[in-house]
Amino acid sequence: MLLSVEDFGIEFHDHDKPERVVEGVSFTLDKGEILGIVGESGSGKSMTALAIAGLLPRKKLKKEGRILFEGEDVLTMERHKLRTLQGDEICMIFQEPMTALNPTMKIGTQVEEALRIHHTQMNDAARKERAIKWLENVELDDPERVYESYPHQLSGGMRQRVMIAAAMVGGPQLLIADEATTALDVTVQAQIIKLLQKINKESAVAILFISHDLSLIRQISHNVLVMQNGHLVEKGAVDDIFDHPKQEYTKKLISAIPKVEL
């Protein structure tokens, strides 16, 4: 078992009264597993993902429960310890590929960054070689040219591939993809899903795939969590969830999928 989330909750204290946005969420994730989290907007998917990646704001927020990554709690871990995991063992890609990359830094530098931080013994040439290899792995044409480019010179789909390369370059155990295909058009979406599946097979990286889109979740996940209003309403293997949903909420979500897409 790679990740174990136990009775996790978040309460915001940045307004007049405390707001519970996640409560009592428990699940586990095995090495190499693709776990989908589905739920409508505002159900607490991103907050859960950010907590696992150690990216929740540090102020005005109460965290409950435990998030054990290889047995160690990322919620209570010291920051410098957490930083050794971030980018090396746990990586994350986000919804907006247009803004998730630094506009004034070359793609190559950004892809290599995790290596520069975590694999300090590597020299420049070895780092570049690894970065180029990953730009190739994410199926970008002309990786040498992409390496020298800036984000604005690439399309949204290309940038999301770059984000995946930058996340994978350190050889992580867990890749968190929060709505990573939502901002892309349908054909590019399908390509990215295929790419994530390929990477999952080849690198044995576990993927936490978050989306509000059930058909994508069904396509990619081994297991699925359904979230609603900060609670986990149902979890199970993908076929069980889609073929025999137990909860009313899950049934409602499934019946709302447009038939043509299935």
Binding site: A53, L55, M92, E96, A100, P103, M105, E113, A114, H118
Partner: peptide
């Protein structure tokens, strides 16, 4: 901005994020 969150997700410290990523953009 989003790219700052990306930088944190790679394990950079706050000062590294500020110097390596934020500063150049903020100087524009």
């Amino acid at each position: 901005k989003d790219y700052v969150r990306t930088a944190y997700s790679r394990g950079l410290s706050t000062m590294e994020v500020l110097y390596r990523h934020v500063l150049k953009n903020a100087m524009i």
